[in-house]
Design a protein around this nucleic acid. Structure first.
Lengths: 224, 224
DNA sequence: TTTTACATACCAACCAGTCGGTTTATGTGT
DNA sequence: ACACATAAACCGACTGGTTGGTATGTAAAA
């Protein structure tokens, strides 16, 4: 199964539901449902119902459920990316403050029910990694791309604070994503969002310890 | 839906397939399939096929797919628990060495395909937490119980190394589980097991930094 | 008038779970 | 030892509902 998505049409004006709105509504309906139930437990009819559109509209915009999943992963990257770009922690002058601000921001987002604060692509990739290469790739793009933005601030913080570590900015950026994804699992399993916040508090402490001084690292191993 | 499993019959000798062997075969077949595809994408027929038993046998041993899932989570706790209990890192005299030994052991287990080294309950709870309370509870029992064993060593290490932190042994034990679960997601998403090992290397460095000295912690916040 | 956006009815495949029947182990009386 | 009764283990055909996806038609936009 290929997977060449119908590109977001270059047309500009509005239709019955302004251009692409139905498409977005379907993908955003999938966000909540998949985070609550998983991908394969979420039926196309359910997504249509939540989005308020018919099944015919679904298959007009997406050639299959798998295509929706991959497109939704991309859409997730865009919407969350815009949200993080607009977040206040970017204003900090010290890049380390931006990194710690990012972590604090992630912790602050954890509120309410897990289907509202957990990661769409992190949930979906658990089911799709082996069965759907396009979905796996879209999920990895999302996680990796998001980590890339953080990586820049980490790299700047490393330069500014003169750390000479056995680890790279990229590996630390990905480690933060691992902690976040794992924190979401703890929250879902325990039914307690506080479990996720506690794990993130340890992550913040780790980053603080790493940048506390530029001295020798304890571990000889490198994160290359 | 209640969920009182037919207790492992008090009979002793062997049947066609020695007592409980079919049951175990079904649960262990589920381990691999669920880790690769997720729970709801895995059909009962598929599990039967992998275990080499008929559908009639499946529903003789489990009253529903959900019951199998919950029982399999318990079985996962038992089999992995026995495996960790037998691991060599327990021999270390210094409790901190046991904690670091545990982390090294977890890293060493990451080899081959994700369906062979990732966590069954961590994968399953992502799909079941909102739809099946019994499965959610069994998964949390598994994670929480496993963390409990590590917690004991962490607590001993805290006493032996005179740390007076703003965090608890339990919160650190759960943090390690978060890192591991998140590391598995990175491995599945990227298709590269090395991603998981790198995240765990950061975890080890964090524990080393925490125990490097008993001085004041940087963060005023507590992990209670 | 052509294309896009949607709607509805429909379908074959698949799903979890059921059911009647068969096979095998085991305990008991003799 | 041996028949016999009982129950557990197991089989595979079947069922009713659901699934992803299609076919056909219609109304609005361009």
């Amino acid at each position: 199964m290929p997977l060449t998505e119908t590109s977001p049409s270059p047309r500009k004006p509005a239709l019955r539901r302004s251009a692409g709105e139905t498409r977005d509504a379907l993908m955003e309906a999938a966000f909540g449902l998949v985070r609550a139930q998983g991908l394969s437990a979420t039926s196309v009819d359910e997504i249509c119902g939540a989005a308020g559109v018919s099944k015919g509209a679904f298959f007009h915009h997406f050639k299959s459920k798998e295509h929706l999943a991959a497109a939704a992963a991309d859409h997730w990257s865009e919407t969350t990316g815009a949200m993080f770009d607009a977040a206040p922690y970017h204003a900090a002058a010290d890049p380390l403050d931006r990194v710690l601000g990012y972590i604090a921001f992630r912790a602050a987002l954890i509120d309410g029910a897990p289907e509202a604060f957990t990661c769409f692509v992190g949930t979906m990739v658990q089911e799709a990694w082996a069965t759907s290469p396009p979905v796996q790739a879209a999920c990895w793009d999302s996680i990796s791309g998001h980590a890339g933005k953080l990586e820049d601030d980490i790299a700047a913080a490393m330069a500014a604070h003169d750390v000479s570590p056995g680890w790279t900015a990229r590996s630390l950026a990905l480690h933060t994503q691992a902690v976040l994804q794992g924190a979401f699992i703890l929250a879902k399993a325990s039914g307690d969002a506080e479990m996720a916040r506690e794990a993130i508090r340890h992550l913040r402490r780790y980053v603080e310890l790493l940048f506390a001084r530029g001295g020798p690292v304890l571990s000889p191993d490198t994160n290359h």
